[in-house]
Amino acid sequence: MTNVVEARNISKWYKEVIGLNNFSIEVPTGITGIVGPNGAGKSTFFKLLTGNIKTSVGELSVLGQKPWRNPSLLAHLGFCPDYDFLPPELDGREYLRFVGGLHGMEPGQMTTRVDEVLQIVNMAKDADRAMGGYSKGMRQRIKIAGSLLHNPQLLLLDEPLTGTDPVIRKEIIDLIKDLHKVHGHDIIVSSHVLHEIERMTHQVALIYKGRAVATGEISEIRQLMSDHPHNIVLEGKGMVELAKVLLTKPYTTSIELRPDRTGMFVKVDRPEDFFNAIPELVIETGCELDRMESLDDDLESVFRYLVRW
């Protein structure tokens, strides 16, 4: 499998602020999801890929070329940023003609391609309206249309689902899948929500605090999520009996009972085993559980865990 992007130990800092820190990744063909919380470095990564900024150190290759000061590479890249930049006074078709002109497309070729792309993103009907009146979903579609107008090999979509409602989100997810499956584009798409990425691809990279903390199949990431230590809150009656039994189990690291004995914090290093065993333990001890909640069953916790690892 060839890689569309290879980054080796790249760092990018803006004065004292670190955007990416010793970041390494290999992105194969197909759809790859870049997942990380806000401020993790996803947008910095995209800016480096498009040559908008240059790496402070390290080696970066996109489609086999260095991106900084290399405009010819941009003929093979399509970039859809996460922010809104569309000129409100232009209509969708004018905007695409502007993009096509910047890519050096001849007028005849451009007219045909603009119509094609508008069909692909399902915007043909609204293409002649001023973009200032577009909904969020329409703006995302026309941005994606602009990024694929010149039929690039690699599409970079930065948070394309942000701010969209569930219906639009589903449509954009289907569109992104089609752009790869039907139209053959390789795609790097970012999000701060893992399950959104999961609906598009199984190939993901987790970024946290400027570092790639895990890359690979989403099932492996899921495994990491279930394997990392969890802090679990239990509340109900008979907590003392339950705590005594839990302390004998190998997956329990520590237990902190609340003074009123109606709740406790349990720290476990194998949450999967804990959650499998808990029904039997409840029956065995005769306790009554009112609440059981993991405080760490979210992506942010996984990131923190992986960074410490």
């Binding site: 405009p71 000129p87 890519h103």
Partner: peptide, 18 residues
């Protein structure tokens, strides 16, 4: 400042020509 320059700087047109 309003980031509309993104379209220009992510196109293959040499920035000096732009």
């Amino acid at each position: 400042d309003d980031r509309s320059i993104v379209q220009v700087i992510t196109s293959p047109l040499d920035r000096r020509i732009a």
